[in-house]
């Protein structure tokens, strides 16, 4: 019996307006040290976290979107983004930052971390988890 559990972090808030998105990232990065099967879900306003071209040059908040690019280094390689949530917001996959990881088991081939799933598929994915964290 393996003691690896399936952890899913469910991200539901837009970045910047509240601190949830950044807090979630920090928990994910710290939790990544424990060698569990980690995935991230982006639903509702959470999909805004992955919007490309975030630019803080005129704002007084730090642009933390580059941290999502480091997730691959922390072996966090499954980012599920809900299709319906994007559509409700006039967004498509092209509007998101390209995020990739290098697959150690496949000669370091570069692969996409973002997987667009439907709401029904998201429900299924949640059902398969051992532990769910909601941010």
């Amino acid at each position: 019996m393996s003691d690896i559990k399936k952890f899913m972090y469910v991200n539901r808030r837009a970045p910047y307006g509240t601190v949830y998105a950044l807090e979630s990232l920090e928990v994910v990065l710290i939790g990544a040290a424990f060698d569990q099967d980690v995935s991230l879900a982006f639903i509702g306003d959470g999909v805004y976290q992955l919007k490309s071209d975030q630019d803080s040059s005129e704002a007084d908040q730090k642009n933390f979107s580059p941290i999502y690019q480091a997730l691959g280094d922390y072996d966090v390689t499954k980012l599920y983004v809900e299709k319906e949530s994007m559509e409700e917001r006039g967004l498509s996959l092209d509007d998101l930052m390209p995020l990739t990881y290098e697959d150690e088991d496949d000669d370091w081939a570069e692969k996409d971390s973002i997987r667009v799933v439907t709401r029904d598929e998201m429900k299924e994915l949640m059902e398969q988890q051992d532990v769910l964290f909601n941010f």
């Binding site: 910047y16 805004y48 919007k51 630019d55 040059s57 704002a59 006039g90």
Partner: peptide
Amino acid sequence: MQGTNFEADVKNALASKKVYALGPDIKLRG
């Protein structure tokens, strides 16, 4: 932004009200 589920509400408001948006907050969010 265009294309959201609230676009119609905002367009409706524009017919009788002045609507502004803060540029730096648009840019920050990509």
